[in-house]
Design a protein around this nucleic acid. Structure first.
Lengths: 230, 230
DNA sequence: AGACTACATATTGTTGAACGATCCTGCAAT
DNA sequence: ATTGCAGGATCGTTCAACAATATGTAGTCT
């Protein structure tokens, strides 16, 4: 046995760090890069992603790239057409409707729980709002959108479910594709900063039902504005 | 123009067949085969899927197989560990809890809609129950499970959302992994045939709220029994 | 002009081999 | 019992090649 009495405690702490240590493969890093470029709109919806061109540009082989494409395709960020290649996904109005149908299901559910919202759970919400406020003050429209989405991701996280977290992450990533078919994507999120603040305020005061209603209003409003752009 | 007046009708019908016509790549067929073998338990949780061995067995190259693995990994049926390979997923008790947390969110939601349940939506529910009854009568335990799951898939489909359909499909596929850590997987579903019948009956009589409650009871019961097996 | 065909070209689908990197096992040394 | 060190097995990634498929173009016929 070792000399230390708190041995198990130390090991438990280290085990918690295991995720930090997770290295990543080239395939995952390439997918990460492409995901980023699609989300920020550098790669536009409908655009074809040539294996040869992108593989050459990133300096990776076609096989590696194809594995990355499979990941992105499963995330619905690109569509894979047999013998034709992969294309950045283009969302239809029905997609927007469906996306919001699921959001209206997932997000309010996080506020339905019997468990009161914990201080720890609120922290990321505050952080997201602060980030959005900063970005708005400095005129970084795209970052307002990112922070706004992080707010709603944190909202869904209150449900405490790993699967809901990934479902939500996926939904929001898809939703980013919608913004790129709009005229001024940067300005879309600005009006919602106040509404998110309101939701947070209600949560802090423990008024779950009203927070829930404010959230539903928000979702209905956002959906309507997006659909109007189609 | 063509000579037929009902041209658009014909074309619409043909468009519906497009999915049947969707050819598939080797990668997808391989993934389909592996998915099947994992679900039926031939490939057990924890088992390692060797690229060399499986590639040789199926007669496909390593590169192709790796693309298939990426798909299955994104579906959570296998886990990919860098430099160690892919393994059939082993679910923990927490996974079961999380899986049912999402089921309890998704499935009842399909019965919340303002829209009354259509005759067309009920058909697959009846078909699933009939299939389960047949399988039970002939002692095919595994098929009872499959039919049972199809019942709940059809239930979720009442929501009319493509994304909810795939979320549900994914959840159920994962859930199959749970059964393989149990003693007698075949017997698990048998008791639920009657409960599903009850849910269907309530739906047919338009008693949505009671159907919803029966569904929630079912889910709570199934979750408890699964957790007991851990 | 318009429609159809045939061919040329580019791209994807899949394979097989190669080589470095990483992990695992067994054994010797402490 | 723990550590250090081969050696072998497997994965990660690349490359080159060829088959299968889609697209573009020119030519032919009406």
């Amino acid at each position: 046995m070792t000399a230390r009495a708190d041995d198990t405690g130390v090991l438990a702490a280290l085990a918690g760090d295991r995720s930090l240590l997770n290295r990543s493969s080239t395939v995952e890093r390439v997918a990460e890069i492409l995901r980023e470029r699609i989300i920020e709109g550098l790669l536009r919806p409908g655009e074809r992603l040539s294996e040869d061109a992108i593989g050459r540009a990133l300096g990776v082989s076609r096989n590696t790239l194809r594995e990355s494409f499979r990941l992105l395709s499963h995330e619905r960020l690109v569509v894979h057409e047999l013998n034709r290649g992969v294309f950045v996904r283009t969302l239809s109005a029905e997609d927007v409707t469906d996306l919001y149908r699921v959001r209206k299901l997932i997000e309010p559910a996080a506020l339905d729980g019997d468990v009161p919202v914990s201080e720890e759970g609120l922290r990321p919400l505050r952080a997201a709002i602060a980030a959005a406020a900063n970005a708005a003050a400095e005129g970084r429209g795209a970052d307002v959108g990112t922070a706004n989405m992080r707010f709603h991701q944190a909202l869904a996280a209150l449900a405490g479910s790993a699967r809901i977290d990934t479902i939500m992450r996926q939904l929001l990533a898809e939703l980013r594709l919608v913004f790129h078919v709009m005229d001024r994507p940067g300005e879309f999120h600005a009006p919602y900063l106040d509404r998110n603040r309101e939701i947070l305020g209600l949560l802090e005061r423990g008024e779950l039902q009203q927070a829930r209603q404010a959230l539903l209003d928000y979702l209905a409003d956002a959906e309507a504005r997006l659909l109007a752009a189609y």
